[in-house]
Nucleic acid binder design. Structure first.
Lengths: 125, 125
DNA sequence: CTCAGATTTAGACTTAATCTACATCTGTTG
DNA sequence: CAACAGATGTAGATTAAGTCTAAATCTGAG
C-alpha cells in the first residue's frame, strides 16, 4: 500500500483486505459493516474517506448502477457490468465479451465508456 | 394521458408538461422545484409518485448515472448516454451512433443494455 | 346528491453520504 | 528519548434523496 503513497494504518489495512479482494461490488455501508466485524471501532467516516483515497490512487473504481447507492470495485481494468433486475446483484463482464465499435462524439473528449446490461438470471423462478 | 389509464389530474398534467417534454434529464427534486413554479402547492410525494406512475406506464425511463440521484428521461427509445465529468450534465446518444455487438451472457436473460460514455466537452477550459 | 375509491398533502421517517470539531497516532527533529 | 506538527481517526451532527403515513380532498359512477 505504501508504494501508492498511502500510509498503511491498521484501519486502512483492514479496509483494504476486504475491499481490494472482493468481487461482490459492496456499497460503502456494506464495507463498513464487514470491516467492523474484525475492527469494531472503525468509524463510518474513516471507511468513506479510505474508499475515496483508494479510488483517487487508482486502487478502486466507484460505480453507480442503480439501487440508490454507489458500489466499489477493485477490478480497475476496463470491463462491462451486468445488473440483476431482481436482486440488484452486479457481475463484471470481461471487456472482450462485448464488441463495441468506435465511440466518438462531436465536441467530446471521451475518458471511458462501458456497457451496462440489465436482465435476470435465466434459471430464476 | 388517459389513453394510458392515468387519470389526468391537474397535478399530473403539470408534471407531465414539464417532464415529458424536457431533454434535461432532471432529478425528482428538480422536477418538483420546476413544477412548483407553476403549481406551488404540489407536494413532493405527488411528484415522486407521479414519476413512478409515468415510469410504470412506459412514459419515462429512470437512470442512475452518477451524481448520487436518479434522473428521468422521456426518451424511452433505446439510446446511450454521455455524462460530462465536470458538470454532471447528461446527453442522449442515438442508438445508431455506437455499434454494439451481440450481448449474450451465460445464464442471463438480457432485458436491455446501453453504453455509458464519460468525458469532457472538447472545448471546456 | 352521495359515497367509495382514487388522489393529494404535510410532515415524519429512513438511509446514504458528508461534515465538523476534537482526539489520537506517527514520523521527524532536536 | 521527548516534543511537536501533520496526518489520521472518531463520534456524532448534518444534509439530501427518497419513502412512508395518516388524514384531507377530489371525482365520477350510481
Amino acid at each position: 500500500m505504501s508504494q501508492y503513497g498511502i500510509r498503511p494504518s491498521a484501519q486502512r489495512v483492514a479496509i483494504a483486505r476486504y475491499v481490494l479482494a472482493t468481487d461482490q461490488h459492496p456499497t460503502a455501508e456494506q464495507v463498513w459493516s464487514r470491516v467492523r466485524a474484525t475492527f469494531p471501532t472503525v468509524s463510518r467516516a474513516t471507511v468513506y474517506n479510505t474508499l475515496q483515497l483508494f479510488k483517487q490512487h487508482g486502487l478502486l473504481l466507484e460505480h453507480e448502477l442503480g439501487g440508490g447507492s454507489a458500489v466499489f470495485d477493485p477490478n480497475v481494468e476496463p470491463h462491462h457490468h451486468f445488473v440483476d433486475d431482481e436482486t440488484g446483484e452486479i457481475r463484471d463482464i470481461p471487456w472482450s465479451a462485448i464488441a463495441v465499435g468506435d465511440v466518438q462524439l462531436p465536441d467530446v473528449q471521451v475518458r471511458e465508456y462501458s456497457v451496462v446490461v440489465r436482465g435476470r438470471r435465466a434459471d430464476a423462478p
